[in-house]
Amino acid sequence: MLATPGHAHLRDAARALGIRTDALRRQIHHLEHTVGAALLHTDDQEHLMLTPHGEHLAHTLLPILDLLDRTRNPGRTPS
Rank of each mutant, 00 (worst) to 15 (best):
A3H: 14
A3I: 12
T4W: 04
P5K: 06
P5M: 06
G6V: 07
H7C: 00
H7K: 12
H7P: 01
A8E: 08
L10S: 05
R11H: 12
D12E: 14
A13R: 02
A13Y: 02
A14T: 05
R15H: 15
R15D: 14
L17E: 07
G18A: 09
G18N: 02
D22G: 05
D22Y: 00
D22V: 05
A23I: 11
A23R: 15
A23F: 05
L24W: 05
L24S: 02
Q27W: 15
I28A: 08
H29P: 00
H29Y: 06
H29L: 00
H30T: 01
L31T: 09
E32N: 11
H33I: 14
H33S: 15
T34P: 09
V35A: 13
G36W: 12
A37I: 06
A38G: 10
A38L: 12
L39M: 11
H41Q: 01
T42E: 07
D43V: 00
D43Y: 00
Q45I: 01
E46N: 12
H47V: 01
H47D: 03
L48C: 10
L48I: 12
M49R: 14
M49P: 01
T51E: 04
P52G: 10
G54P: 03
H56K: 05
L57H: 08
H59G: 05
T60C: 02
L62R: 09
P63Y: 03
I64H: 07
L65G: 12
L65Y: 15
D66A: 14
D66V: 10
D66M: 14
D69M: 09
D69W: 04
R70M: 15
T71Y: 04
T71H: 08
R72T: 08
R72P: 00
R72F: 05
R72L: 07
N73Q: 13
N73A: 09
N73F: 11
P74I: 07
G75F: 04
G75E: 03
G75A: 13
P78F: 06
